[in-house]
Design a protein around this nucleic acid. Structure first.
Lengths: 213, 213
DNA sequence: GTCTATAGGGAGATAGAC
DNA sequence: GTCTATCTCCCTATAGAC
């Protein structure tokens, strides 16, 4: 075991990283399009331009591959949503939070759908992630909201139900986009549709929670 | 073709109806628990206490069976949600609508999950149903809301985004109940959790849309 | 690391006796 | 209508040559 790698090892590591990224990105598309169970490793291999055996070389089983895809999604997700900054008050923070969540639904629709499919299927991997997220991140946001309530900056609403609602409203534009398209009678959602969603949801939350500042 | 049936035919029809109901009810449970693609006709047969061939006798293919399950779900659903009564004004109507949707999430969780799974998988059957629903029902509700806005009874919000949000918030307690349980740190959701959800969502919608009466 | 060929296991669906 | 046995297909996963 050494940190010094010979050129050959570096090359191998590079090939490995490149192939893994290719497989993960392709899997994300195929899983989102076909559904988790209907997706076959053959489909992924074909779309990635690789023999099926190579996919299994990098990810022993389909389950391993799905978990790798989920892990990658969740890591990128966490980085793209800001934490609350208590000093700025609820208006700025909630507005930013909703905006970022809707942007996520738009720019990362596939990731969002895969997460939703895994969640509705109660995949252990996702449930564990959520349990952990609750302990590390959300409990902090919860305290912040309670501070704002005590300072009279917003109505004393249930923090849990508030988060559940914001997630539901913002994710629905990615997860159930087929339904949204029918409602809006459009073949594809445009940037303006997402902006209107942002505007509507932000208004409902801010006014609905009686946010002062 | 005659309306008069001989006793033998009546018996057969009875057996048929009974078995079909048994299969549909069992399928609803299994589909919701296992996911649509992971469910096998064998699982359904076992849980219903029938040989697999009998399931295929009544529903030629798995796809036919899923569509029959969806059709049954949607028929029961439509009957359990009231239409808007314009004269009563937005407060009563929106409160009742949210309450009925949450009750549905609680009492018919399996149906809700199957619908969500079919929708996220963009099953043609469900998309067609929604398109039809939009034409027959929702366009009427939309007009009603616009009347209320004109009468100054509520703020001029986007009807489409309002419906999308109410659906998202109420359905999430059924479809993603695993996530809700983690958030609320409970092993099972109780009646009081659903009542709190109702209370929170109703408040956000009524205050958020500036509903006067 | 790459790839062909194949093992091994079920799944959906049906034939045909009762 | 019921049920056993079976066909056929295709999926995951791996062995083994290159």
């Amino acid at each position: 075991m050494t940190d010094v790698k010979r050129p050959k090892d570096q090359l191998k590591a590079h090939i490995r990283a490149q192939n893994q990224t290719l497989i993960l990105e392709t899997s994300e598309r195929v899983f989102a399009r076909q559904g988790l169970a209907k997706t076959t490793t053959q489909m992924i291999a074909d779309e990635a331009g690789l023999p099926k055996a190579n996919v299994h070389y990098y990810y022993r089983s389909k389950k391993d591959l799905l978990e790798a895809v989920l892990e990658r999604i969740l890591r990128l997700w966490l980085d793209s949503v800001s934490e609350f900054n208590a000093a700025e008050g609820p208006r700025i923070n909630l507005t930013r939070y909703i905006s970022e969540k809707i942007d996520q639904s738009r720019s990362n629709k596939n990731a969002s759908k895969i997460f939703a499919m895994a969640l509705i299927g109660e995949e252990t991997f996702v449930l564990e992630y959520l349990r952990n997220l609750f302990v590390t991140e959300l409990s902090r946001e919860k305290v912040t909201i309670q501070e704002w309530v005590e300072q009279g900056l917003m109505a004393p609403v249930s923090t849990e139900h508030l988060f559940i609602s914001i997630w539901a409203m913002t994710q629905t534009y990615a997860d159930f986009d087929a339904q949204v398209k029918i409602m809006l009678q459009k073949d594809e959602l445009e940037k303006s549709d997402y902006e209107e969603a942002k505007h509507f949801i932000t208004r409902m939350v801010l006014v609905g929670c009686d946010v002062k500042d």
